[in-house]
């Protein structure tokens, strides 16, 4: 069957990319400043202790051997230890990934609910007032630096208007996190029936989510618009009109067929939100992987940095792969081709 072969082919093409990602990640880490041994030992260790540590950490081995070790560790699921905390990076990151994902999903929800209808309306009412406004808002959205927007919103909505909470992370200080089930505070507090925490976590996630959504709204709206417009200009839409089908039906067709490119943009947006989280998390002290990466850079803690770049690269590539595969499921030309 066509679909199966298509998916296998995609996966095969994915392998060299995976390899490339590890290569880039390794190279960047190799050149990171700071002496891992010194960071690992902390304090002011003696020259002998340092030397011993360097040998133990394999820093004197040739590059290719170090890459080989890195790869074999990676394949056995070992991302190394944080030099600072001496805990496995996987463990450190696992916690924070959920914070990043929770923020991304809430933002994505806002984007999908607002951005897609806006794009569809702009396309159907091309060159109307709504279209012009949506386009202008769209271009403005991608022209505003997210960190600045975050700061301005904090100033206006927290300091001045006092509507939103301070930018202090996922919950106010002193409040315990909900019983851990999924790691998403909203879901966990809901599941454990802790409505007070649910309210607080929704309250605390709102402003960072709105900021992320505003910055990422534009691409979705714009892509939706151009995808729908593209379909509307197709011959088969003309033919449907020539066959006298009602406009409502024609719009439905156009929407359905524009779904794939819209899907792709949603996928890309998730990627962008995860990479953009590094800035948003700093502004809102959101304890996700972005903030963790910045802290690790500041303290020369190599393994978490390496893991961060690897994870973001993998996620990005994986999303691309998944949207490709989604194409296969939706498009009959691939499915049965």
């Amino acid at each position: 069957m066509g679909l199966f072969r298509y998916i296998v082919k995609r996966f095969l093409l994915f392998i060299p990319i995976l390899f490339g990602i590890t290569l880039v990640t390794f190279t960047i880490t190799y050149f990171l400043p700071g002496d891992p041994a010194a960071v690992r030992l902390g304090g002011s260790p003696s020259v002998e202790a340092l030397e011993e540590m360097r040998i133990k950490m394999g820093l004197y081995k040739p590059v290719w051997e170090r890459y080989f070790i890195y790869m074999s560790d990676l394949l056995s699921g070992d991302l190394g230890k944080s030099y600072l905390t001496d805990r496995p990076v996987l463990y450190e990151i696992g916690d924070r990934v959920l914070a990043t994902l929770e923020l991304s999903f809430v933002s994505l929800f806002i984007i999908v609910v607002i951005g897609i209808p806006l794009g569809v309306i702009s396309a159907f009412k091309k060159n109307s007032i709504i279209d012009h406004v949506a386009r202008f808002v769209g271009v403005s959205g991608i022209s505003i630096p997210s960190f600045w927007l975050g700061l301005v919103l904090i100033f206006l909505l927290f300091y001045v208007a006092r509507i939103f909470p301070p930018p202090l992370g996922r919950l106010p200080p002193g409040i315990d996190e909900p019983a851990r089930i999924t790691g998403f505070y909203i879901v966990d507090s809901l599941l454990s029936g802790d409505l007070e925490t649910l309210k607080l976590s929704l309250y605390y996630i709102s402003l960072p989510a709105i900021t992320t959504a505003l910055v990422n709204l534009a691409p979705i709206t714009r892509m939706t618009r151009s995808a729908v417009l593209d379909v509307l200009e197709k011959d088969y839409i003309k033919a449907a009109r020539a066959a006298g089908l009602p406009e409502r039906q024609i719009y439905k067709d156009a929407l359905k067929n524009a779904l794939i490119p819209i899907l792709t943009t949603i996928g890309l947006s998730i990627g962008f939100m995860i990479s953009g989280s590094i800035v948003i998390e700093k502004v809102f002290s959101w304890p996700g992987i972005g903030l963790f990466a910045l802290q690790s850079i500041a303290s020369n803690d190599h393994n978490p940095i390496q893991a961060y770049i690897l994870i973001v690269g993998l996620t990005f590539a994986l999303i691309n792969l998944l949207t490709d595969i989604a194409y296969g499921f939706v498009d009959p030309r691939i499915k049965y081709g």
Partner: peptide
Amino acid sequence: RVTDILLAFPSLILAMGIMAALG
């Protein structure tokens, strides 16, 4: 292949990584 790999990363993250390495 080289461009594939470079484009596999979101450019901000790639930039961040390179800057972290170079200073």
